[in-house]
Design a protein around this nucleic acid. Structure first.
Lengths: 334, 334
DNA sequence: TTGTAAGCGTTATCAG
DNA sequence: CTGATAACGCTTACAA
């Protein structure tokens, strides 16, 4: 049997309210009895019941995280950033992965609502785009990481990398290296980040007076296999590209590994640039040139924003989306 | 304001208990009123309050996961397996990372206890080894993934890969390839998996009549940087090894990337074998030979075991630790 | 078939 | 300073 404040009260010969006060270090209780109660609680192995506490305080000290899958290294870094900051503030996190399945995405949102989380952060998931309304119904702050939201709501903001800027950075770098036929391997369908990166790519081409060729934009999925497959379609083009900008590092790494299998020399025959700068990017071979995003920091920022929104509450105002700029990290694939 | 069953009761002109029954599809309520109530609940945007429910049912439909860091690809896969299976059973997961900091490890356990999780699974964390007693105090099933536990408790079991077998597999493979000086780069200090893998390594050497040389066992940490550093110490040995078996894939990949920097040809000058077979192992270059563990499956197994333990409850008996065997996957680093 | 009432473990508001 | 007492939103006997 778990021991409750009632048990302690009995053992200490006081009322349960006094125990509650003593345990929360209220100044309303005599130092002496407080000490006695605390010692007793310790001895009896008492742990407060967060569930009961939440029922009355109406706060769970828990925030929800929704992701597509935690196995994506980018996501894992962001989640770690969130978790770190949450822990520093005494909060714990409930993790829900949506697997990009509509049924599961909706279930995740409902679950977070039922579990009464105090805030939620969504990253790399369609949930931010598709279920924003549901999310807002929860009535708690929501912050999206790299998920475009048309308009910030009262409690809904986002922290994102400047995708267009990053796409431009990557493509311009390739152009400076003398490439004229540059392909783009896209990310998961309908993902807002993808549109931005593509836009940056197009803008860079335009600025350089290079034509945009639809055939040079091939579909990927943000994962290793998507990158591999993309290379197979690119190599069969009438005039294959001499460089590729990939939606993210996983795509680029998949493509790199296909290149190796096909005997395509990187960067001599094909230059490649990724996006994210996941920890492994520097360790594949050749080491990957990429656009670095401060992944952990973005997680921390998002979590911090949720906290700010939680306390600001009715105070309103003063909030805005934050966007960080990616940095070009030149390694050996370009 | 959130709508509660009381609000629905009022709107429907029935008592709140009838609403509760209707919503839980109790046969004790007339089909007609049941339908009316459910429609009303729907219209009013009702979501049950899991907190309140938990307080009375004494179950939270939540399980705790403790890891060192979610950014380790092996951990991420296991966690995904756990989350998948949990979701299939209507459970959600609360994630706690310990960062291998004693303060945080203890905090994680206390938090899970306070939040009244129905079960916990620990993976790649010292928590299983160091805080087993605390963990058991929570009074719920605990399953450790790749964490040695001296003796299975009443509710404490583990699912692990056969480390010794895996270590033997890796080393024997290297020996068959003709290597005589084989190094081992170890994992995080005091990690039980490490001991097993090392034992397998030693046994393979022994069987082949090769001497064990302490100098050939160099410390790593299970991460990329540990692998990199390890190679720097290995290459400075009087007689450097011609092959290395690494604690895990991350270590091996770090080592591979250092090799590239140092101009050491793999596998010609140095063969390397990893452990885990993380998704990226096949995509580094050269593609990594490794010992594959069914990571997701292990996560699912662990979660399933927690469920079984939860329901078996007092029934007791019939449970035992499960150990799976790793498989040698030969790629191009050997 | 439905309603009343108790209780889950806390915190919080009153009185004393 | 301390003790009753009332919530918090739900489930579940026990009555009707």
């Amino acid at each position: 049997m778990r021991v409750s404040i009632k048990d302690i009260a009995e053992a200490a010969g006081v009322s349960h309210s006094t125990v509650s006060r003593a345990l929360s270090d209220s100044p309303l209780v005599k130092a002496e009895t407080k000490a006695r109660i605390r010692r007793l609680a310790q001895e009896m192995g008492y742990t407060p019941d967060a569930i009961a506490r939440s029922l009355v305080t109406q706060r769970t000290q828990t925030i929800g995280i929704v992701v597509t899958t935690i196995t994506d290294p980018f996501v894992a870094e962001v989640v770690q950033g969130i978790e770190d900051m949450a822990h520093e503030h005494g909060y714990s996190v409930i993790l829900a992965s949506s697997a990009a399945e509509p049924e599961r995405e909706l279930a995740a949102v409902e679950m977070l609502r039922a579990k009464r989380v105090d805030g939620v952060v969504v990253t790399s998931s369609r949930v931010g785009a598709l279920y924003l309304a549901h999310l807002e119904r929860i009535g708690v702050p929501v912050v999206l990481v790299n998920n475009h939201n048309q308009q910030s709501g009262r409690y809904t903001f986002s922290v994102s990398v400047d995708n267009q800027h990053g796409g431009h950075l990557a493509t311009a770098h390739l152009i400076r290296r003398g490439h004229r036929r540059i392909a783009y391997v896209s990310g998961p369908a309908n993902h807002s980040d993808d549109a931005g990166r593509l836009a940056g790519y197009r803008r860079a081409l335009e600025e350089a007076g290079l034509p945009f060729e639809a055939a040079l934009v091939v579909p990927g999925n943000g994962r290793l296999d998507g990158g591999e497959r993309a290379l197979y379609v690119l190599k069969d083009l009438d005039t294959p590209p001499t460089a590729v900008f990939c939606y993210n590092d996983m795509t680029a790494i998949g493509l790199l590994s296909a290149a190796r299998r096909l005997g395509i020399q990187v960067p001599r025959e094909l230059a490649v640039v990724g996006f994210d700068d996941i920890p492994l990017a520097a360790h594949v071979c050749p080491p990957l040139t990429t656009i670095a995003q401060p992944q952990r920091e973005m997680g921390r920022l998002a979590m911090g924003m949720v906290f700010d929104l939680m306390t600001a509450d009715e105070a309103g105002g003063g909030f805005s989306d934050v966007t960080v700029e990616g940095k070009l990290v030149v390694r050996e694939t370009t």
